[in-house]
Design a protein around this nucleic acid. Structure first.
Lengths: 152, 152
DNA sequence: TATTGTTATACTCTATAACTATA
DNA sequence: TATAGTTATAGAGTATAACAATA
């Protein structure tokens, strides 16, 4: 019986039964854990979760205006400005004035953005598969998403 | 066929299939939703999720030092100072110098803190039950917690 | 009048470095 | 030397108000 801890007299573990039973608490811890994994995985690509979701949404909905993309992601349009400008400065996103509404910017991926996202999607797919493996398989993933949906 | 939206020509819904399939994204949205509910529920009690978890943990582990409570919650001890001082200023928590270690503060709930937490626990239990109902029952709650555990 | 993108700003949360007093 | 509590500070993320151009 070896002591894993450095401590000579390891403290008695705390009673965390109450917090462990709280759905919101467990949700938060799981979300932080998954986001940490995302940040580590995408560290070299300099992509944060919000950036990735924006790129994906623009790719799947080309030509939409900032407000539409922002709103569906739950991002305030004021905060979306900095985010999308950052992606534009990196040459991934194009903001072209809308032909039908001179106030609006139509969002598109650049050629570089398309290639970048293709790579990012592959990286993400590997990470996602690892999460699915941890859950136990596709059935469990579907179960989880359904349960999360009922909370949202 | 009535149009639910105010818009005369409602925009075509965005394709959100890609983001909807991302575990981390769905986790984040669910967590935000549950936390919003918590904030609304505890608005009058002026309790944030972190405050509540700290009170619960001190109640279940009286006499522990700040670092221990902070660490198990994943809060940096530097940030924990403001949090626990706030609870002390409200008369809910007592910071008494430890008898065995003059550097450490032993944390306890005050009499007022015990009563306050008893009330908060009842309020929280009602909220938790509502979440369980949304999930479909205790079996689904257990399922969700198990799945979240595998991600953490 | 209302909306789009924008700027400015403030508040919360989180992270790090450095100090003091004790161990 | 290392640890507990603390302070200061900086960086994200998020929220609101207000403005110019346009609808």
């Amino acid at each position: 019986m070896q002591n894993i801890l450095r401590d000579e007299r390891p403290a008695i573990a705390l009673d965390t039964a109450s917090t462990a039973g709280i759905i919101g608490y467990r949700l938060r811890r799981a979300q932080l854990s998954v986001f940490q994994k995302f940040l580590a995985t995408f560290d070299t690509l300099k992509l944060r979760p919000a950036d990735y979701s924006v790129l994906v949404l623009i790719a799947d909905n080309p030509g939409r205006k900032q407000t539409e993309i922002a709103e569906v992601l739950g991002i305030k349009r004021a905060n979306f400005v900095t985010l999308v400008h950052g992606l534009e400065d990196r040459g991934l996103v194009e903001r072209t004035p809308s032909s039908t509404d001179k106030r609006a910017n139509a969002l598109h991926l650049t050629t570089e953005g398309v290639a970048f996202l293709a790579h990012a999607r592959r990286v993400h797919e590997a990470m996602e598969q690892e999460l699915i493996d941890r859950l136990g398989g596709d059935k469990e993933r579907t179960q989880l998403l359904a349960l999360l949906d009922q909370l949202t």
